[in-house]
Amino acid sequence: MSNTYQVPTMAQKAATGETPEVLFWVGCAGSFDERYQAVTLAFTKILNKVGIDFAVLGDEETCTGDPARRAGNEFLFQMQAISNIQVLDGYQVKKIVTACPHCFNTLKNEYPALGGNYEVMHHSQFLQGLIQEGKIVMKGGGTFKGKRITFHDSCYLGRANNVYEAPRDVIKALDMELVEMKRCRTKGLCCGAGGAQMFKEPENGNKDINVERTEEALETGAKTIAVGCPFCLTMMADGVKNKEKEKEVQVLDLAELIAKDQGLSG
């Protein structure tokens, strides 16, 4: 067995006649956004450590089309979706895990109408499963012990797909004190990036949505804001900077929290 981390691609697997158990859909943010690359790396390390039989699409992956559809460009969405389905079906993909709720929602709910049917999981659900099966045993203690943490519900995980407990179960497995924001679960306030807002300046108003949400997160007194979405991570981190709290307050993805606990970061 190799002593370096492995990131096999579907093409490599196919060349040796293998069909991996699960496809890790990295997403555009996970591939290109420097900050979110850290989440991709953390999740990949976890998959390696646990010994999951996985692969990625590598440079065969393209945008799911989510922002195009939500901005009204149905043509572009379907061009992306249909091309992606051809690639996925070409590799006979059955199960997909992704660290992006937007990719998760689109692959899970919107690809079936175009003929793409897969079992799709958000990485919070995947991690929840690994914890429940005992494949990840949290060490606890260390820098996290007893510290306050709050979780920001992503719209496309929460309201859009009713996933509220999986990320919380992951956090509860850490040795931390989970403090909820006033607006949480079904009432969770958006970070401001959904519906393709990530890709344009906000309309005129009296406040930025991410600042409103960050203030609420800071009110909990938590020094860690946990998220499960690349856009939420950007928005909350910007909010923390706006409040000049970036030295005291961290915004971390669920996979990063686990990787830290398991001593996989760095």
């Binding site: 002593n3 370096t4 981390y5 996970g30 591939s31 790396l41 390696n48 990625v56 590598g58 440079d59």
Partner: peptide
């Protein structure tokens, strides 16, 4: 798109 993986491959597991 896949450049992120090169950061990982050099790292000791």
């Amino acid at each position: 798109r896949f450049n992120w993986a090169s950061k990982l491959n050099q790292e000791e597991k």
